[in-house]
């Protein structure tokens, strides 16, 4: 391959960001994850006193990692996560250590779902999931403002409506 080091093509980021509250949502989920990881350790320390010292050590470690994760990852994700709908396709960019850019052509979209978990409802957020005929072609935009999500799902549904094909 004879492509020069500079001037290679790359991609600009998709235009749309998530709701800033998505940061809070990720932070809450991170905190919950840390708590879930702590429960068995507390259990072991309580019922098996022999291992209590070890559990204190791993527990402190868990809390430290959890707090760092909580402080860093949501911001990182928020800075990276983007989405955009062009005339042809839905694009999402997600991940934090590993970037992932997913593309679903509008002509191939089969279903558009919005979906709100308890945490998301608390924060007035919503997810939009777009599926295609592929078992691994689904594409999810998490942490949208609820109104935006409904509007987006509406727009996508309308865009796919008059493409009555099999879409496989």
């Amino acid at each position: 391959m004879t492509t020069p080091e500079t001037g290679e093509p790359r991609l600009r980021t998709p235009a749309q960001r998530l709701s800033p509250r998505a940061k809070l949502w990720w932070a809450l989920r991170s905190a919950l994850g840390t708590l879930v990881a702590l429960v068995p350790q507390v259990g072991v320390a309580w019922f098996l006193p022999d291992y209590a010292r070890l559990m204190v050590l791993t527990g402190v470690l868990t809390v430290v990692i959890g707090v760092v994760h909580l402080l860093v990852v949501p911001r990182w994700r928020y800075a990276l996560h983007r989405w955009e709908i062009t005339d042809d396709a839905v694009h999402t960019l997600s991940g934090w250590l590993r970037l992932e850019w997913r593309i679903a052509p509008i002509s191939r979209v089969q279903t558009v779902d919005t979906d709100r978990g308890p945490l998301q409802r608390l924060l007035g957020l919503s997810s939009v999931t777009v599926t295609t005929a592929s078992s691994s072609g689904a594409l999810t935009i998490d942490g949208l403002r609820a109104d935006d999500a409904v509007a987006l799902a509406d727009r996508l549904t309308r865009a796919t409506e008059h493409l009555g094909e099999d879409a496989t």
Partner: peptide, 9 residues
């Protein structure tokens, strides 16, 4: 019917 591009660190 779609693409996924992945790039790790």
């Amino acid at each position: 019917i779609g693409w996924r591009l992945e790039q790790s660190l």
